[in-house]
């Protein structure tokens, strides 16, 4: 069994298709939607964790691509560059899962990796470009 995280991009016309249903029924994959923003007639994005055998995973990914969905491996690690970080705290304002927070009292940055869903919101928000992804 393998567990992998995928970053899916849905073209506008695809946004209503029941993708996760097919991944379960046709490929026996266990999906876990970490984050999704999908609206009719707009490009959508989903951060999806899939658990299953290697063969099923490959077949599932092939199915997604055939459906016109952009598939790329999601980041597996987030790196904070302490030398660049000025601890402004702006990343905490966009971190919905609460993985990045400021410690009470000291206001120093705390990163709880277990809560991170690799949505990359902090990467974009960081004015110091101190947050990078590792794949």
């Amino acid at each position: 069994m393998a567990r992998r995280r995928l970053d899916l991009t849905f073209p506008p016309r695809q946004a209503t298709k029941a993708i996760t249903y097919h991944l379960v029924k046709d490929f026996d994959l266990v999906p876990n939607i970490l984050r999704a923003q999908i609206q009719p007639a707009q490009e959508g994005r989903m951060l999806l964790e899939l658990t299953g055998s290697a063969e099923q995973f490959e077949a599932g990914v092939a199915f997604l691509r055939a459906e016109g969905i952009g598939v790329r491996e999601a980041a597996s690690d987030i790196c904070l560059d302490d030398e660049r970080c000025v601890v402004c705290g702006l990343c905490t304002a966009v971190c919905r899962p609460g993985a990045l927070t400021l410690a009470e009292g000291t206001a120093e940055l705390v990163f709880d990796k277990d809560k991170c869903v690799y949505c990359e919101a902090c990467v974009v928000a960081c004015p110091r470009r101190a947050v990078t992804l590792r794949f």
Partner: peptide, 21 residues
């Protein structure tokens, strides 16, 4: 600085942009 404010009865998470440390 507590990380959450309430506006019109709605809790809103906060984040600073000015570094306290």
């Amino acid at each position: 600085r507590s990380g959450q404010i309430e506006i019109e009865g709605r809790p809103i998470p906060t984040g600073p942009i000015s570094s306290l440390p």
